[in-house]
Nucleic acid binder design. Structure first.
Lengths: 213, 213
DNA sequence: ACTAGTATTCAACGCTCGTTGAATTTAGCG
DNA sequence: CGCTAAATTCAACGAGCGTTGAATACTAGT
């Protein structure tokens, strides 16, 4: 069975995603992207308006799907608990698990995109604007669900708890290899299953400690 | 009382720190740095070997002091608990509080440096190497202390818990303003006291949940 | 005042950057 | 085939990049 080449536009987006994830927006040139996509430099400006537009399209290409599967996971949890309240673990799991599963199941396809998110989330320049634009509607939905599960929480505590969650999750996405060094090989940055197994439990305990005072 | 100008080398380091923190290593040119430092471009290469060397010196300038005050805070906690075991909160507080206090007390001086750390920690390219080089000796010391406070912890659980801590802490350093948007103004990225007040409690609960199974 | 060393300025190097317009090839369709 | 529109190539633009070497100004110590 012969191999049909991907459309050029997709090849460019793939190359841009991989390179932006490694070195950031400014650390990559359009020429490097097009070289990796095996296409002429000027083709970038046939398919996209500018380097910045290319970057935005890389972001947009996958973000909607991510928001869909996470919302769906939350709705399933709420469906399952039509009569009682869902636990904090389950709500947090609905937030983290869909992404961690994608990353674990098709690492090749998703790792670069999540690395990009990790960098953006921690970028003083773009973090506030981009993350809010792409994710805050969904995040607000999750915070509402958590507010019901933690009815005694003060108004600020839930937001700060989510902030801690966000930091923990996106550092996982970065897959820097630091935990490999620190643990002397006991843990591996790419072992997403190990994270999936621990993160909801860890964070739920934090939420409860802070939002039940 | 007249104002004495800072030595040129320090002015360059200050300018580089601020700009690298905002836009990353690749996003800033030596010319921009020297323009902000109000000095000729070529002076950068009199005081430093290269752009990369300048970046390294920015990092090195403050990292030792940070490691010192955190180690000291840990030793004080251990001193205070010569007979019993220190609590997980206290150990984590010794890790986070010295930095958060610096940031709260002299924001002007420290905010850019911590923003830089936030970006590096989440950079797939540099995160593993640089963070390990600069911080892992100290972190190992803290993990040993936590192991004593959590004697039933499995070998991987402590490292993953620290990983979550690291992500939560460095996202705080980034001060992206996202939590301002998300909370509609209830929380502010720059309100470090609010973080200091919540982080040890939140994280200690997570550590205990994961490392006491 | 002379000197030695430090600090700073000036001009330039080769190279890469993002971007563009025009020319060319390719693919779909009557 | 012949026409049209989409896709791709080619060559180049002005600007900015990191870096360097030589010339100049400043600052101590004698």
């Amino acid at each position: 069975m012969a191999h049909t080449r991907q459309p050029t536009r997709e090849r460019i987006l793939d190359a841009a995603e991989a390179l932006f994830a490694q070195r950031g927006f400014e650390g990559v040139s359009v020429r490097q992207i097009m070289s990796q996509a095996d296409a002429d430099v000027s083709l970038a400006y046939y398919h996209f308006k500018s380097k910045r537009d290319l970057f935005d399209q890389v972001m947009l290409r996958k973000v909607e799907y991510l928001n869909e599967i996470r919302l769906q996971a939350l709705e399933e949890v709420e469906e399952r608990h039509r009569d009682d309240e869902p636990s904090v673990e389950e709500i947090i799991g609905a937030f983290t698990r869909p992404l961690l599963q994608l990353l674990a199941d098709d690492h090749e396809k998703w790792s670069h995109y999540f690395q990009l998110i990790a960098q953006i989330n921690n970028s003083p320049e773009m973090g506030g604007e981009l993350m809010s634009r792409y994710f805050d509607p969904l995040v607000s939905r999750f915070i509402d669900a958590l507010k019901k599960a933690l009815p005694d929480s003060g108004p600020a505590d839930l937001y700060w708890s989510y902030h801690f969650l966000s930091g923990a999750l996106t550092l996982t996405f970065a897959e820097t290899g630091r935990i490999d060094n620190l643990s002397g090989g006991v843990c591996k940055s790419t072992d997403i299953a190990a994270v999936d197994e621990r993160m909801p439990e860890f964070l739920a305990a934090g939420f409860r400690a802070l939002c039940s005072r």
